[in-house]
Design a protein around this nucleic acid. Structure first.
Lengths: 172, 172
DNA sequence: GCCCTTATTTTGAGTTATTCACGATAAGTG
DNA sequence: CACTTATCGTGAATAACTCAAAATAAGGGC
């Protein structure tokens, strides 16, 4: 099942090109990277590749379901190899680092909303927000997300978001 | 507790201005709107308000926790009045419309990830993806999100994302 | 009510992360 | 090997904001 990148591309009716292989390899090694980072990594092997080509590749591979695109609030799009498993993500609200969360307890009930306003629901996506080990060690920086991208702007009121409680809050 | 917009602003140490009141009112009437839409609504009352002012206001009110900012993949930021309750969102993958989901069953266990990679977890956020009633009625359009913004580009392979299964899939 | 301090707003430019177009190039097919 | 057409590169365009600094206007004090 886990065939070579080449055959995965062929199976998806995509041509096998150096760029695509390099991008796939880069994501394999550095999961959850954004397009810019991937471009820099790929250029180590393929110096001439353009930023747009990387975007094209990411777009095509995402469409072909060889990659999954994740877009946490406050960051640019990140990519990961699509594994068939069920996993979610934890995003560091300080530095934006993303890690996989294998699964959650009580999974099935989680995905049963009580009131769907007439929507036909297809998928459920869970994102955890927290602080990664490195940032916990360094302490004291400013949050990048749940909604407020570190107001460094002196003109606008900056409300401290510091209190990192240990208990998990349900996000409204 | 549900005091007037004026006193909510004052309590947050923010000055009461026409722009802020208008934005609050607009969001009250049109929840889950983006900055651009809100700007257009507000201009019905306050023709001269600038786009940047609307952004300022949204930023300040979000910081003050009078608003909540939500950023579903594939859309620009949306805003809603912050109600103290626990609710999540359903996003229509065709038109981007957002609706509230009051709560999910088995809430507490959902928020207990099995493996946090050293993160200190703070909050959990659940987003459901599906098709809204209107789009279900109209049928056949192309998906705007989980990751693929309707590739209308003829150059790039467009894989059909159509199959709207009725069962809920866990999103990897 | 008027003055003063300073939070907001406006104006205008700058950024970031992408997408669009299209000629040049190179996979894969016969 | 020739040929068709998917892919790449170049360059421009866009969306959605953010940043900066001068102009304006809340709200407190007199």
């Amino acid at each position: 099942m886990s065939s070579s990148p080449e055959s995965q591309l062929r199976d998806a009716a995509l041509r096998v090109t150096a760029g695509r292989l390099a991008v796939l390899a880069a994501i394999e090694e550095h999961p959850h990277s954004d397009a810019d980072t991937l471009c820099r990594i790929v250029r180590a092997q393929l110096p001439g590749i353009s930023v747009q080509s990387v975007h094209n590749v990411l777009h095509d591979l995402t469409n072909a379901e060889l990659l999954r695109r994740i877009e946490p609030a406050g960051s640019s799009a990140r990519y990961e190899r699509r594994l068939g498993d069920n996993h979610h993500h934890v995003v560091c609200s300080v530095c934006g680092t993303i890690a996989d969360v294998d699964c959650v307890h009580g999974e099935a009930p989680c995905l049963t909303p009580s009131n769907t306003s007439g929507f036909v629901i297809d998928t459920a996506e869970i994102t955890f927000w927290g602080v990664c080990a490195d940032c916990t060690a360094n302490a004291g920086a400013s949050a990048i997300s749940p909604s407020l991208a570190a107001s460094t702007n002196p003109t606008h009121s900056a409300v401290a978001t510091a209190n990192a409680s240990t208990s998990i809050h349900h996000v409204h």
